[in-house]
Design a protein around this nucleic acid. Structure first.
Lengths: 299, 299
DNA sequence: CTCTACATTTCAAAAAAACTGAACCTTTAT
DNA sequence: ATAAAGGTTCAGTTTTTTTGAAATGTAGAG
């Protein structure tokens, strides 16, 4: 019923006493007089019904109970401090949470260092990474399910209400597994020859918008997978062929696990873009807008 | 420099306002008058320099900053409450921490439910599970590295300063792997025949006391391993033979992965015991002393 | 549109709490 | 033995918190 007798003042007092070594020194550090500390401590001792100091000797010595309060109390004081500064941040335009929609063409792990850095600076601002593919990623932004998305300009629905900014170039390469028949003579295949093999395509995660397909698709021999990671793995396994973003498969191209097939059709490079809703000006959004760069594409 | 303006009173006020829905109702719940709440809130708003409520409408509405303080504050209030009650517990004879030494003959996982239950009841009392083998387990108790140990009476050094209590019977069975030569005719092997195979023994973790060996050992063909789990695995792999505690290998005996070999020597059943230092009367120690029972041996 | 019923704030006064400084023990150091 | 330092006590002072009555303001009913 009554209040918890533990006060932040007591926690601060215990901390100071432990750090400075005596009531007198602690009192000075807290800009108080020693008897004020005695008062604070005795009050809690009385209300809580336990001893916090053993006064049998010359110098007061903390009891195990006080030691527990001291140790856990430090964490609580830290939390309270963080909380106060976070509240100020939010009041000054930092959002309480930010939802970032990441298209499956990007490697999510490349964003982790940035998110980690942000989290260190702003421990109480929650960052949600949500995943989407193709039009589905834009849909998250339009619907308000994400505050910021990473996608490509190819898929930009070009409707009102949002703004974009480019942060890198993405070249798509037609690649097949090392042991795939198309890998043997890595040039000058005809359409018919290529169409002999299934194409792996990433399924659009959009629920409402018209699904978009990227590049040409043939009606026959399509295998759809939910994410770019699945597509890469499927092509690595030789299950099918298709365009893959170079930044996701550079290691595989270098090691020879995947082989680029040159086609005579031209594939204009697309741009990696971030997009956000017009008029949304949160500082956390700005923080990421300024920092998301080519390193998300593996530099 | 100055104090953090966030006070526990504010956190409690925000919580009540959120739960009851209005300053007036919250004030009543806190046995105060509404203007007192206004005062508490305004004071923090002024000190922190931010608004906690939007007063443009009829009813005061929390700002996002206040919402953050509310949500995180609830956790802090919970911590403070736990801390107060834990401090009282410790002052009334509950130890701040308890170190339990577990001999390797026991399956550590069988203790987890008990430790979990204890931890729910006493969130701020730290339980350390430390592992030892043979005399080493007793040494932890004698040295003061453990407050309570689980071992067997066979290894009891029978010196002054501690007390024991039995909590179950442990039968040791001479077992070999399914495919081991000794498994084929599971009876009446001569000593010489058995001595043809290596014996797996658990190494004593003792640093100072005289290492004890359990049962007979032959000087030749010994393979020592650090824990009972290693010994079981070694015998399962057919690497050697030896006595194993039935409660650790019941599943393997049932499935036939291990086969009991009957020997004509008699092996008196030993007792599983707990032991603690005489005169140590902490309540956490008592809690475990009362509850450790045959379920540690798999019922 | 006016009136009523809340919901909250303002303000001065009162109560409670926290703090101070001087006096006083007690223990440690010299 | 004496000085120095740590801690407490206590009466008085200052500061903070609470109160209750009046004021303000808004939503909703009639």
């Amino acid at each position: 019923m009554a209040h918890n007798p533990l006060s932040l003042d007591l926690l601060r007092a215990l901390d100071a006493i432990d750090q400075r070594g005596s009531f007198a020194a602690a009192a000075e550090a807290l800009h108080k007089v020693p008897s004020a500390l005695t008062y604070t401590v005795q009050k809690v001792e009385q209300d809580l019904g336990i001893d916090l100091f053993d006064r049998s000797g010359h110098r007061a010595k903390m009891t195990p109970a006080a030691r527990l309060i001291l140790e856990e109390g430090r964490g609580i004081l830290r939390d309270i401090d963080n909380l106060a500064s976070s509240a100020k941040k939010i009041a000054s335009g930092w959002e309480p949470e930010l939802r970032i929609g990441v298209d499956t063409v990007f490697e999510p792990a490349r964003l982790y260092p940035l998110v980690h850095e942000f989290n260190e600076e702003h421990p109480y601002i929650k960052v949600h990474l949500v995943h989407g593919s193709l039009s589905g990623t834009w849909e998250m932004l339009i619907n308000g399910d994400a505050d910021l998305i990473l996608s490509t300009d190819l898929l930009d629905p070009k409707i009102d209400g949002y703004e974009t900014s480019r942060f890198g170039e993405m070249s798509m390469v037609f690649a097949v597994a090392k042991n795939h028949p198309l890998a043997s003579n890595a040039c000058d295949w005809t359409h018919e020859q290529i169409e002999a093999y299934p194409t792996i395509v990433v399924r659009d995660s959009s629920k409402l918008m018209a699904p978009r397909t990227i590049g040409w698709t043939r009606q026959n021999k399509l295998i759809t997978v939910p994410t770019m990671r699945d597509k890469i793995e499927a092509q690595l396994a030789g299950l099918g062929v298709g365009y893959l973003p170079r930044h996701r498969i550079q290691a595989e191209l270098d090691s020879g696990a995947l082989v680029q097939v040159k086609l005579n059709e031209t594939n204009p490079p697309s741009e990696a873009v971030i997009a956000w809703r017009t008029g949304v000006t949160g500082k956390a959004l700005g923080w990421f807008r300024e920092r998301i760069g080519a390193e998300v594409l593996g530099v």
